[in-house]
Amino acid sequence: MRNLRKEFVKGLWNEHPIFRLLIGMCPTLAITTAATNGLAMGLSTAFVLICSSTIISLVKNIIPPKVRIPCYIIIIATFVTIADLLLAAYLPDLHTVLGLFIPLIVVNCIILGRAEAYASKMPVLDSFVDALGMGIGITWGLTFLGGFRELMGMGTIFSQQILPAGTTSWGIFLLPPGAFFTLGITVGVMNQINHILEHRRTERTSVEPTMAGQTAES
């Protein structure tokens, strides 16, 4: 049970797919112009990730190892098509905004990466929990980035006015360069936080503080 908890938690921070592993960058940069878009993209990706990881884990013993990658891609593409059609039917506005990047979930490295590195080796429950953690990680990451860019660019979050009306908004955050800046700085801040946390941990555990914690960062 404890093991499952660990599998779940790692996707939320320590092995956060976007901020720590830096995979699945294309949708991360492209659609996070508003918190709503980030949330929608995060949930769609999480849906595909959870479904495909579970299914791949279920059928992993039937698939011959030589053709496993094409098989995984077909499973993933099927769920992406389901997500694509569901969004088009029930949330047509969001579907238009996310546009090209919904079908591109197929080639999101996070999903194939989890399939190859985790779901193809682990039992079903573990894969499900792992995908759930990673999915929630992606969702909060994209929502955070979207919220930040929306706040800076328009003074709103989820279309609710946050900054007092009349504050100068930085339109650059809604344009492509803003995506790169926001993500770059977020990655830097996450690294710094982790560095401090690690530093504290080594100080607490070892009586004699060593230099190991300080040089571990790379």
């Binding site: 360069p177 995506a179 990655v187 830097g188």
Partner: peptide
């Protein structure tokens, strides 16, 4: 380069500047 920005962080910021140029 500031330590936390080494690697991906600085690469993304450079990409941002290049993207600005392409705008």
């Amino acid at each position: 380069i500031p330590k936390p920005l080494e690697g991906a962080g600085i690469a993304l910021i450079i990409a941002g500047l290049m993207s600005m140029a392409f705008m």
